[in-house]
Amino acid sequence: MNRLAYLRASSLEEAKQALALPGSIALAGGTTVVDLAKLGAMKPDLLVDIGGLAGLDAVRVDAGRLHIGALARMADVSRNADVLRLAPAIAESIERAASGQIRNMATIGGNILQRTRCAYFRDASTYAACNRRTPGSGCAAIGGVTPNHAILGATDACMATYPGDLAIVLAALDATVHTDMRDVALVDLFAEAGSGRETVLADDEIITAVSVAADAGAARSSYLKLRDRQSYEFAAVSVALAVDLTGNGPQIRVAVGGVATKPWRLPSVEAVLRAGPPTRARIAEAAATAAGDARSTPDNHFKIRLLTRTLERALLTALDLS
């Protein structure tokens, strides 16, 4: 890790002042920042510890929405009774993410902002070419080892996978990210892969909370995660569903992880599912559209098949057809 400065912010204003400086970055749980700083994939001059900011770690229900403070620890959120009742997939995705230790450390805001696991991004000393690290420098992953890379959203600029679990569920639930400056839809939070920016947030903009509508779809939300190892591994493919059975025909929202450059909604799948009763045939048809825009390498080609099957299974299970 490069020699750097540390500052513990005691108020949002202090934090914003510090984050306005070039080279500064917010530190909360530390599970991403400390890791990447040790690798040299990130070389901050100043770590602004926002972990002590008061009032940003609460989970509350307000006006039909479930609000989760940005500094709430993942472990606490996954055990929160309101979360379990109103949006169980949030808890489910957290339980499947990382280890017990990391879930005790990582915050909700930090977890959403976690960085890709692309080996070429992480090894700055060998691979100068990485559009995520250095915009315009190219992409060393092209022609490299890419079984974990994205099949959706991948471009010549970047095919690194968004690694998180929680944000996939939040995407399915149409979550809103609240910052000290504005509200942003979660799916709009992430910048175009390889654009040189991870998110649309300003440097000194601080996520304060994330919220989802405590609606019927959230109450019947689910998260299915597939990976080689039984635990402590990122998703090969994951599927988040929000299924609302209260209206005329099910309203189903679908997001997928492990396969895309950012949390990925699948409107084409949702459209097929909206077109009629949820029969097995319709589910198969919907799942088959999921990878329509996929772009694969020989290494990650298996994910196309895996995505389709995982989606189909998740839908069948959610609709009690399995």
Partner: peptide, 29 residues
Amino acid sequence: DHGQCGACTVLVDGRRVLSCLTLAAQAEH
């Protein structure tokens, strides 16, 4: 040293955390 093995697990305020991904400064309180 990267949060991938758990050998460095300690308790902070009774909660298990990874000391390799915790800055000493963060543990001060």
